[in-house]
Design a protein around this nucleic acid. Structure first.
Lengths: 237, 237
DNA sequence: GAATGTCTGTGTGTTGACGCACATATAGGC
DNA sequence: GCCTATATGTGCGTCAACACACAGACATTC
């Protein structure tokens, strides 16, 4: 039996909300709710993926880890999508780490079941592919932004992308961790965050950040944010 | 009738070379050979794609164009892949421009025929998806490289990625154009290229560059190149 | 061979981000 | 309350890349 509450919770994830009732009915018994703590690693680079994850309130960051240990984020996944696209794309692994950026809930499903449902075709298949294209846009825009924009702009972009995937205005995260995500120095984030706080857009105390004025953040962001946002809406809206 | 010569030429493209004989036989009558000049734009950002392109000797660059006109490359496609993945991913467009970086030959095919063959499933379907995953890795690594590495390292990476997709050691391309691809200043490329020439790795005269010592370039490159190379081999090798 | 346009080399000053060092502030355990 | 670990603020020297300016080299055209 599938309790109705599980369905209500599952469709907080936009992909699960968008598929047909028949598809959802097939998937629901296989979706296991999991609560993820900050910092939990879902996949290690090159590691075979056993599960696909559909976040509802958690946010997952996709990171590349350099040989010297420095890191850079290539994309972020929340209730807009799924973690583990390599499972149906055919590669089974990626050279990235998937790590929990904001604690919360997800549903996980066995990789084999994911492949089965994907190969049935149908709307689920199409949704997975369209989501993948949206993710490609996000990664592309990260590349562009890393090349051409300032740390200030990138912090705004990152905060807005996170906020879009967050159930509240609070983000539990130290400046040191944000710096690791963006691949910049911790001091760089301190400077940028102070400016945003002085402007009244955010407030923060020791790893507890609150977004006070989204519109303000949007004035400080580069065009990259809107490009990604528009593309997600176009492909999955 | 499909002349045998056309088949010989088509399978210079690795995707076309890897699919089943039946699939190739179905596609061949629909593949039109096209010779592309340097600078030719295949798709504009947001423009509906009418054709998918399978390069054999040409190289296509995927660029993002900022509102202020500055540009940055997010990926490069040669005989290893195809241009126009948005056609089968379902989005039909992308926010990027596809422009010819190195003149040469491609085969093009109507978007509708591409979709038909893709939805048949089979090895072609799987190859398209695996190629897409490889491209994601390339874009991801571009993001990482843009964040963490020097112009010198990035030029080496770019030259090696291009050389892998080139039928010869010659690359017809001015420093100004390379700068636009990498999203850096022309002078930055001048400096980096001079160092590589002094080291004997390359030689160049007014937009005519020759790669003399690949192994040398590999000593100057960051790990990003090898990550991408390995992933292409794993997924499509 | 003169004129023009394009490509490459070089200099100067500026700036954004880095690396390092250390000061201050808060939370939590004992 | 004290201690320690962690988080944030700040200063300073360095450096890579930037913007701008212009000189020289080569190619093409007439």
């Amino acid at each position: 039996m599938v309790p109705k509450a599980a369905k209500e919770e599952a469709i907080q994830n936009h992909l699960l909300a968008g598929i047909t009732p028949e598809e959802l009915a097939r998937l629901l018994p296989n979706l296991q709710p999991v609560t993820l703590e900050l910092g939990k690693v879902l996949y290690e680079s090159g590691e075979k993926m056993d599960y696909v994850y559909f976040p509802t309130t958690a946010i997952i960051s996709l990171l590349y880890i350099m040989e010297n240990g420095s890191t850079a984020e290539i994309g972020v996944v929340g209730n807009d999508g799924m973690v583990g696209i390599a499972i149906f794309m055919g590669g089974d692994t990626t050279p990235n780490r998937a790590v929990v950026q904001s604690a919360g809930k997800t549903f996980k499903m066995k990789a084999a079941l994911m492949k089965d449902e994907f190969t049935r075709g149908g709307r689920f298949h199409n949704f997975c592919l369209r989501y993948t294209q949206a993710l490609i846009t996000q990664i592309s825009q990260t590349a562009v932004c890393n090349r051409l924009h300032s740390v200030d702009q990138q912090l705004c972009r990152w905060l807005l992308l996170s906020h879009d995937r967050l159930p509240s205005n609070r983000l539990i995260m130290t400046q040191d961790l944000i710096a690791n995500m963006l691949g910049v120095r911790r001091e760089g984030i301190t400077h940028a965050a102070r400016r945003l706080q002085k402007a009244g857009y955010i407030s923060y105390v020791r790893g507890d950040m609150t977004i006070l004025d989204r519109t303000g953040l949007e004035t400080g962001v580069c065009e990259c944010y809107q490009v990604v946002r528009t593309e997600y809406d176009r492909l999955l809206g």
